[in-house]
């Protein structure tokens, strides 16, 4: 930073420094996305008693690179009847929220690009824009399959966003803060002394479960992937996309998965806090390692769900969202309010 200030002056140095920080977040993110696809194929492979990718590089480790290069070199086909501008805008609109949300995600209590006061609200707002990419892709392709996929996706995401929002309201109630850093700090205090038992997942267990499942639905992952529904509507909203345009949707989906994993670990699993008490020496110290471990755990669950559950029927998805999750979260918010006002409150 001081070096940059010397050669550029204070203002320009600040801009360049921030840009460097953004690259330092986005570049590892992209690598993580690439290797998440690899992990998915390996994990599901082993769950189905196969080996998974094992040809390109040692243990198949170069497979994501090969896939990426292949997709880059393919032609992007523009359907003649499509709405050209929107057709090309749609992948951009779908990757933008997936990346922009990381601006406020803290990795440790100091390692955060922007420690904004309303960071949780910001993430909710930004990630609610992700659905535009899907709707526009479906509409602009001018294909019936795409359009059906887009409609399904729009209805599903809007429904589950409500349940997700209510789950977040519970977190806000106990932490009294919209700042993600503060939300994690609050989980480190409390009656159970900041151990694994005082993290939000236990007192807010119903909200945690609702949040996790809604997260799976929000990212259009199996068993909620009716927007793609290969067996019914070919590939849903991105059926007309090829080459890198398709890859962008793919990237956005996986980046969103990582984002949901990060949010789940921050809001419910204590973020970078260590599950061990501080007396354990090095193990008891919080740090990025714990955050990464928790995110990996949640991501593994995503892959596990995909290998385990058959796809929901569409009306079942809507029923689960509106008639199960929203009532559960509403009831738990009321219970939580009463609990916090009672002498038994854990959050004094």
């Amino acid at each position: 930073m001081a070096f940059l200030q010397d050669i550029l002056g204070a203002d320009a140095a600040y801009v360049v420094w921030t840009l460097l920080k953004i690259i330092a977040i986005v570049a590892p993110m992209m690598i993580a996305v690439a290797y998440l696809t690899y992990a998915e194929r390996k994990v599901i492979g082993y769950m189905q008693v196969r080996i998974g990718p094992n040809r390109v590089g040692p243990l198949g480790l170069l497979q994501p690179l090969a896939d990426g290069i292949k997709l880059l070199m393919k032609e992007i086909i523009l359907p003649t009847q499509s709405s050209k501008g929107l057709f090309l805008l749609a992948p951009v609109l779908s990757i933008m929220p997936a990346l922009a949300a990381w601006a406020v995600v803290p990795f440790t209590d100091t390692l955060v690009l922007s420690n904004a006061n309303a960071s949780l609200l910001y993430i909710m707002a930004i990630s609610s824009m992700g659905v535009y990419g899907i709707i526009l892709a479906g509409w602009a392709s001018n294909s019936k399959y795409s359009f059906l996929g887009a409609l399904r996706s729009a209805a599903q995401i809007v429904s589950y966003e409500l349940a997700m929002g209510f789950a977040l309201v519970g977190v806000l109630m106990v932490s009294g803060n919209l700042n993600l850093v503060e939300i994690v700090r609050q989980q480190g205090t409390g009656i159970a002394g900041g151990s694994i038992l005082s993290w939000n997942w236990l007192p807010l267990l119903p909200l945690f479960v609702v949040y996790l499942i809604s997260g799976v639905a929000e990212t259009n992952r199996a068993p909620f992937d009716v927007a793609e529904g290969e067996s019914e509507i070919v590939a849903g909203f991105h059926v007309e996309y090829s080459g890198m345009a398709f890859a962008i949707f793919f990237l956005a989906e996986y980046a969103n998965m990582i984002l949901i994993a990060a949010m789940t670990s921050l809001l419910f699993l204590g973020g970078w806090l260590s599950p061990f008490p501080a007396s354990f020496g090095a193990l008891g110290q919080g740090g990025f390692v714990w955050m990464a471990a928790k995110m990996s755990l949640v991501l593994f669950c995503f892959l596990w769900f995909r290998a385990t559950f058959p796809r929901y029927r569409y009306d079942q998805i809507m029923r689960l969202g509106w008639k199960v999750f929203i009532p559960v979260t509403l009831v738990w918010i009321v219970v939580l309010g009463a609990w916090m006002m009672s002498p038994l409150s854990l959050w004094k």
Partner: peptide
């Protein structure tokens, strides 16, 4: 942020729908 969350994220999606 609320304007984006409510109008862009929910109302306009249903509108487009």
């Amino acid at each position: 942020i609320t304007l984006v969350l409510v109008y862009v994220g929910a109302v306009m999606v249903l509108f487009l729908f």
